[in-house]
């Protein structure tokens, strides 16, 4: 029994971490009033950027330098997801485009781009197996059964985000932007800057989730299901009622559910995977029934803000 638990929990964390990164990033984003449905695409871009970096580095040197082996994928991943966040902000905040449409396009883009590039790299590598050889790099991110250092980073980020939103002045102002941008604007808060920063930092955090998925969970690039993880991360945002600290447990819990589901025959497995979505739906309904202010979505979530509009 103990052995089972000792095996199970680390694996639940391994499966749950992409969800934690994704949901933390999305919470930060949504607190600024941006409903970023591009999270699955951003995670994909983060993953492929990191993977490409790792692949190119690994195949250009004979001996890996531990520092570079870690920093190159991380930096590539952050750069990729930074660009995606910037694109989202430019379209929705500056160009005032519809957030749902922009987000969905970004998911389509990210999924398409990452899978295409992944496929090209795999073909170029001319390996016998249909996946991308990054076996040396992944060792710096964990061994597959244990979470690895990036998991602690993820938990740290979630806790910091929680504290930031709750206890800092900037966090308060960010929440004000998400609740009612007109009021925040009148109070002298730079709405545009807050939306940009929150969304871009949020998507960089989410991008790390994609990197974690490849480097620590699947440990290779072989038709990854990052989009499913991304949508699940958005579900967790609702499930935890916009609280990153609770998301640590929720993500690991959902991760545990995924681990459990792999032990069951096909079919029952699908039922297990249904659970998170149903539970999230129920939470969404209950929260809207009870109408407790602190549990509700940010009031201006999904709405564009244009100062001159009445």
């Amino acid at each position: 029994m103990w052995k089972f638990i000792a095996d199970f929990i680390p694996r639940a964390v391994v499966y749950g971490m992409p969800l934690l990164f994704g949901s933390t990033g999305e919470i930060l984003t949504e607190k600024s009033g941006n409903l970023n449905l591009g999270i699955p695409g951003i995670m994909f871009i983060g993953a492929i950027a990191g993977t490409t970096g790792a692949y190119l580095y690994e195949h250009s040197v004979a001996e890996l330098n531990p520092f570079l082996a870690i920093m190159i994928p991380v930096m590539c991943c952050l750069a990729g997801s930074f660009l995606m966040g910037l694109l989202y902000c430019f379209l929705t905040v500056t160009m005032r485009a519809n957030q749902n449409v922009t987000g969905l396009s970004m998911t389509i883009f990210g999924t398409g781009f990452a899978n295409f590039l992944g496929g090209v790299l795999t073909k170029l590598a001319k390996s016998d197996i249909a996946n991308l050889d990054i076996t040396r790099s992944v060792n710096y991110f964990g061994d597959g059964n244990h979470p690895g250092w990036l998991a602690y980073v993820g938990i740290g980020i979630a806790i910091l985000t929680s504290l930031f939103l709750r206890y800092t002045r900037t966090g308060l102002q960010l929440r004000a932007v998400g609740e009612n941008p007109a009021t925040a604007d009148a109070a002298g808060i730079n709405v545009t800057r807050y939306k940009y920063l929150a969304t871009i930092i949020g998507s960089m955090i989410a991008g790390l989730g994609g990197l974690y998925y490849i480097m620590a969970s699947s440990r290779t690039w072989s038709e990854p299901q990052i989009d499913a993880a991304g949508w699940l991360a958005i579900a967790i945002v609702i499930f935890t009622t916009w609280r990153p600290a609770i998301s640590i447990f929720a993500s690991i819990g959902f991760g545990g559910l995924l681990v459990l589901s792999t032990n069951f025959p096909i079919g029952i497995k699908e039922l297990f995977e249904l659970v998170p979505y149903v539970v999230t739906l129920i939470v969404l309904i209950i929260v809207s029934l009870r109408k407790k202010r602190e549990n509700l979505p940010p009031q201006s979530l999904g709405l564009p803000y244009f100062r001159e509009e009445r």
């Binding site: 949508w231 958005i234 579900a235 739906l281 809207s288 029934l289 979505p297 999904g302």
Partner: peptide, 18 residues
């Protein structure tokens, strides 16, 4: 109850899929 429809319909997609 003014439940957020974007999130609701998104979840319903996955319920149907599963």
């Amino acid at each position: 109850w003014n439940t957020n429809e974007t999130l609701f319909t998104l979840m319903m997609n996955y319920v149907a899929l599963q």
